[in-house]
Amino acid sequence: MSTVRGEYVRSQQNWAVDQERLRHDQALHYMGENALFCLLWTARDHEAGLVGLCPVCASDRIAKAYGQASRATCPSCFGTRFEGGYRALIVRPAVFTDADDSQSFTARGVVAPQEVHLETTSDFRVHSGDYAMRATGERLQLRAPQRTTLRTGFGTPYQRDVATGYNLSRAAVEDPESVAYLIPPNTDDLIEILSRTGPTPPAFADIEIIRAPLIPLYERD
């Protein structure tokens, strides 16, 4: 006669996730700075029906043949090929590492790259190519981040449910001639916005634009 052995599977401890997020966000507000994040539309957003193609640069033969914008500096889509260019402009606290000027030799000549690492909140999804804008006026292109998730029980660790932060995402400072500087606001307004004082944290609802979920349902994991 066989005996069925029962096993206890611990359920997810939501309070632990909430506490870890609270501590993480407090540290960002205490030690970091406010940054404006520009989240660009992606091909998956287009496939999901969230955005159409840019009416300015994505309708000619070149764009249709190669599946990309025919103008890298399009003022309408900012080179993304999708209408409006971005799905969200949001302000979040972030911690940036220091960057030292350097030079490197490339096929295009001598360049002076500046790479930093940053950490910010977990309530939105970053993709490679998105931008972070700082109160210094600099605009940085982001690389795909490494997420930090807190597993407290059996189950799939979806970002929306158990992520606690982005851990040291890399970002490179963009050249002033880059298309990144066509994205509103202009540099003077950007510096004024991110230098706001008052309540802790200051309110930015008047300048934030959210055109789609910050974490799309098809990218929950």
Rank of each mutant, 00 (worst) to 15 (best):
L36Y: 05
D98Y: 13
F105L: 15
F96C: 11
A107W: 12
H46S: 13
S70T: 10
H117K: 15
G137Y: 02
L36W: 04
S59Q: 14
Y86I: 06
T152C: 13
D161M: 04
P157H: 07
A99N: 11
L118Q: 06
S70M: 07
A43M: 13
T148H: 10
T97N: 12
D161E: 15
Q114M: 12
L50D: 01
Y66E: 14
S102Q: 14
T97A: 14
V110S: 01
Y158R: 14
R134Y: 01
F78V: 05
D100R: 15
T156K: 10
L140G: 09
T149Y: 08
C77R: 02
D130G: 11
L36P: 01
G129N: 13
F78C: 02
L39E: 09
R125G: 05
L118T: 05
P55L: 03
G109K: 05
T152R: 12
T156P: 01
W41G: 00
R44Q: 15
R71K: 14
V116Y: 03
V95I: 15
W41P: 05
A94N: 07
H117P: 09
L40I: 02
F82S: 03
L36G: 04
Q68V: 13
D123N: 12
L89D: 08
L150I: 02
A63E: 07
W41Y: 02
V56H: 10
C74D: 07
A88S: 09
T73N: 12
A72K: 13
T121D: 10
H127R: 15
Q103G: 06
S128K: 12
T136M: 04
D130C: 12
R71D: 14
V56L: 14
S102T: 11
F82K: 01
C74P: 07
R143I: 08
H46I: 02
T156N: 10
L118D: 09
V116F: 07
T106I: 01
R92S: 04
A88W: 08
D123Q: 02
M133L: 04
F96L: 15
T136E: 07
Y131N: 08
D130Y: 11
T152S: 12
V110T: 11
Y131W: 13
G67S: 07
G155T: 04
T106P: 10
R71T: 00
G67H: 04
R81C: 08
R108C: 11
T97P: 06
P145H: 11
D101Y: 05
T42D: 14
R61H: 11
S70K: 00
K64E: 14
D101E: 15
T136C: 02
L53D: 02
V162P: 01
Q159F: 12
R139T: 02
D101Q: 13
V116M: 12
R139E: 06
G137V: 01
P113V: 03
A72F: 13
V51Y: 08
V111N: 08
L39W: 07
S122I: 03
A63K: 03
R151G: 06
A99G: 13
A132M: 14
P157Q: 10
V91L: 03
D60H: 00
E33W: 05
A99Q: 14
T97L: 11
Q68K: 15
R160L: 13
